[in-house]
Lab assay of single mutants.
Amino acid sequence: QIFVKTLTGKTITLEVEPSDTIENVKAKIQDKEGIPPDQQRLIFAGKQLEDGRTLSDYNIQKESTLHLVL
């Protein structure tokens, strides 16, 4: 699982696999929060994550925290 922290300070927990794409993660966030993926920007280690890449591409491991910017 990974954590996604929103600007409001809320933390969302997501069940993911390293092979999941960023697009996939955004879809999971939409399921939980109702935020359309095209409004979501995910930041990890100061980098904006691209939809077509996977979590493992960015070396995002379990218990990692991503930041969600709208």
Rank of each mutant, 00 (worst) to 15 (best):
K28P: 00
E23K: 12
V69I: 13
V4I: 13
S64H: 08
E63C: 15
T54P: 05
L42Y: 03
E33G: 05
G52A: 10
K28R: 08
P36R: 08
E23C: 14
T21M: 07
L14Y: 02
L7S: 14
T54V: 06
A27C: 11
V25F: 03
N24M: 15
L7V: 12
I43V: 10
Q40K: 02
G46C: 10
K47M: 14
L68W: 02
P36K: 07
V69K: 08
K10P: 05
I35Q: 03
I22M: 04
I60D: 01
V69W: 10
T21I: 04
L49A: 02
D51K: 04
N59S: 08
N59D: 09
V16D: 00
L14K: 00
I60Q: 01
I43T: 10
L66M: 05
G34V: 02
S19Q: 10
S64G: 06
K26Q: 02
L70G: 09
T11N: 06
N59A: 08
I22S: 02
S64D: 15
I22Q: 02
L68C: 03
K47D: 07
D38G: 11
I12K: 01
D57G: 04
I43S: 10
T54F: 07
T65D: 04
L55W: 03
D51E: 09
V16P: 01
L55H: 00
K32G: 04
T11R: 09
P18N: 07
H67G: 05
A45Y: 09
R41K: 10
T54R: 11
I35A: 04
S56V: 08
G34I: 02
L70S: 10
Q1E: 08
L55E: 00
G46T: 04
N59G: 15
F44S: 03
H67Y: 14
I60F: 03
D38E: 12
F44W: 09
G9R: 04
Q1V: 15
P18C: 10
L55K: 00
Q61D: 09
D38H: 15
L42F: 04
S64L: 04
Q61H: 11
T11D: 04
L66A: 02
F3Q: 05
D20G: 03
L70K: 07
E23F: 14
K28W: 05
L68F: 03
I22T: 04
I22F: 03
I35V: 08
E23D: 08
Q39I: 11
I22P: 02
K5F: 07
I2A: 02
D57E: 12
L14I: 14
T65R: 05
T8G: 11
K32E: 07
K10H: 12
Q40F: 15
K28Y: 07
F3D: 03
L42H: 00
T54H: 06
E17K: 08
E17H: 10
S19Y: 14
I22N: 01
L14C: 04
V69P: 01
G52P: 07
L66C: 01
A45M: 14
D38A: 12
T8H: 13
T13P: 06
D38V: 09
L66H: 02
A45C: 14
K5R: 13
Q40L: 06
N24E: 12
E33D: 05
T54M: 11
I29V: 05
K28N: 04
N59P: 03
K5L: 14
E33A: 11
V16N: 02
G46S: 05
T21Y: 08
K32V: 11
V69Q: 09
V25C: 06
P37D: 04
E15H: 12
P37H: 11
L68D: 00
E23R: 14
L7H: 15
K10I: 09
V4F: 03
L49F: 02
I29W: 00
Q48L: 13
I35K: 03
K47C: 12
G52I: 08
